[in-house]
Deep mutational scan, measured.
Amino acid sequence: MQRVNMIMAESPGLITICLLGYLLSAECTVFLDHENANKILNRPKRYNSGKLEEFVQGNLERECMEEKCSFEEAREVFENTERTTEFWKQYVDGDQCESNPCLNGGSCKDDINSYECWCPFGFEGKNCELDVTCNIKNGRCEQFCKNSADNKVVCSCTEGYRLAENQKSCEPAVPFPCGRVSVSQTSKLTRAETVFPDVDYVNSTEAETILDNITQSTQSFNDFTRVVGGEDAKPGQFPWQVVLNGKVDAFCGGSIVNEKWIVTAAHCVETGVKITVVAGEHNIEETEHTEQKRNVIRIIPHHNYNAAINKYNHDIALLELDEPLVLNSYVTPICIADKEYTNIFLKFGSGYVSGWGRVFHKGRSALVLQYLRVPLVDRATCLRSTKFTIYNNMFCAGFHEGGRDSCQGDSGGPHVTEVEGTSFLTGIISWGEECAMKGKYGIYTKVSRYVNWIKEKTKLT
């Protein structure tokens, strides 16, 4: 034993070699072989497995989906700052455009905790909710729209109204504003409101030439003092309507412009014939205590009207009353817009006519005020429907199939267009061939041609 100890002390290297040989010859039971080890760690190889990531292109799944990435790591994937920024906006807080917040056709661009709407022409605001041009839906104005110097929408209202708090709607500024039905039992019968379409306001006024200088022999019209197929109006439903009495009662109609003036057809009036105007009328054979009678003290036909040349060209006249009318729910003026808007309103496509005229061709006159909704007829169809001249200051309205029309005794009465609950004068009943005849239409004086003249002559002093 002493000898062994001496050998170990003198030859430590020998001992180490012996131990190493023993270990190498022993069977290893701690580690699995290569094949079995792979069965336990069965993990798919990654895209760049075996390579240094710093030297390969980034992978979106590896960089940002398996674990949260930084902007720089995302930049490695896209290799483009702009594309990385677009991805980053949604990656950080989701897609803010998912709810489609942009209105009126706006395009949404996502941002971090926010979004941006790219608005089409005519709109602005956070969600493109603000109209900035009158060309689109009248700028959301209830009545009139004008573009300011910086191309912003400025709404306005006709006389007797003021802008509401929203700067879009119009509200009454006087007790009985024009064009409004205020009798409670008839307010439910107000005709369907007309909503502004998209309009090209630059070209809204037709490029028409008034044929002022045409000389033409007097034409022989049949029954051209021209509501057939209409309905009984309720008291106060058309408070701007008046009836004219002269040699015979209810020979023509008219509309209240203001307390002192009536507008009617020029062919209705004769110099030297006494005319009485009755406002607030409903049943011409009954006294309903809503009527107001006034005498006409002055007749002003349009300066281009000449019955000797043509009885229905420039067929418009103004009547001055001896005493002002007292405005109330049964006696209310009709609204008159400017030339541009009167023309736009007419193009809405349908209007209402009213009167006490004959209820059928050569038949009896109506006792109760009649009204009828009539569609506008395109000019080409209008011209083809008659052998008589249709001037540019006239328009056609009615039904091709016949059966409904204005008729004798309705002449001078109103053709009105309702705009968001307020009625505007767009025409004056003038003439036609018979009444409600198939293929024939009622012919009306186009008020847009005469609004400046009306307003100039009827100013209240």
Rank of each mutant, 00 (worst) to 15 (best):
Met6Tyr: 10
Ala26Leu: 04
Cys28Ala: 11
Val30Ala: 11
Leu41Val: 14
Leu41Phe: 11
Arg43Ala: 13
Arg46Gly: 13
Asn48Gly: 05
Lys51Pro: 14
Glu53Trp: 06
Glu54Tyr: 07
Gly58Trp: 06
Glu66Met: 05
Cys69Pro: 05
Ser70Asp: 07
Glu73Gly: 08
Arg75Gln: 06
Arg75Thr: 14
Val77Ile: 10
Glu82Lys: 12
Arg83Thr: 15
Thr84Glu: 08
Asp93Gly: 12
Gln96Gly: 15
Ser99Trp: 05
Pro101Ala: 03
Gly105Ser: 05
Asp111Trp: 05
Cys117Tyr: 01
Lys126Asp: 09
Cys128Asn: 00
Ile136Leu: 09
Cys145Ile: 02
Lys146Phe: 10
Asn147Ile: 09
Val153Leu: 08
Thr158Cys: 05
Glu159Lys: 06
Tyr161Asn: 01
Leu163Asn: 03
Lys168Thr: 05
Ser169Ile: 05
Pro172Arg: 06
Ala173Gln: 07
Val174Asn: 06
Phe176Ser: 05
Gln185Asp: 14
Lys188Pro: 15
Leu189Lys: 12
Thr190Leu: 07
Val199Ser: 07
Ser204Pro: 11
Ser204His: 09
Glu208Val: 07
Ile210Lys: 07
Gln216Thr: 10
Gln219Val: 08
Ser220Tyr: 05
Glu231Ile: 10
Ala233Gln: 06
Pro239Lys: 00
Asn245Ala: 07
Val248Phe: 09
Gly253Ile: 12
Ser255Ile: 08
Asn258Ile: 00
Ala266Thr: 01
Val269Gln: 03
Glu270Pro: 14
Gly272Cys: 05
Val273Gln: 05
His282Asn: 11
Asn283Glu: 07
Ile284Trp: 09
Ile284Glu: 06
Ile284Val: 11
Lys293Trp: 11
Val296Leu: 03
Ile299Glu: 05
Asn310Lys: 06
Lys311Glu: 05
Asp322Leu: 02
Leu327Asn: 01
Ser329Pro: 14
Ser329Phe: 04
Pro333Thr: 03
Ala337Thr: 03
Lys339Met: 15
Glu340Pro: 08
Ser350Met: 08
Ser350Ile: 07
Thr381Trp: 06
Thr381Asp: 13
Thr386Phe: 09
Thr386Lys: 08
Phe388Ala: 04
Thr389Glu: 11
Phe395Val: 02
Gly403Asn: 09
Asp405Leu: 13
Cys407Asn: 04
Gly409Trp: 07
Asp410His: 15
Thr422Lys: 05
Ile428Met: 05
Ser430Glu: 03
Gly432Lys: 10
Glu434Ser: 13
Lys438Leu: 12
Gly439His: 10
Tyr441Gln: 02
Tyr444Thr: 01
Trp453Asn: 01
Lys455Arg: 12
Glu456Gln: 11
Lys457Asn: 15
Thr458Lys: 02
Lys459Trp: 05
Leu460Gly: 06
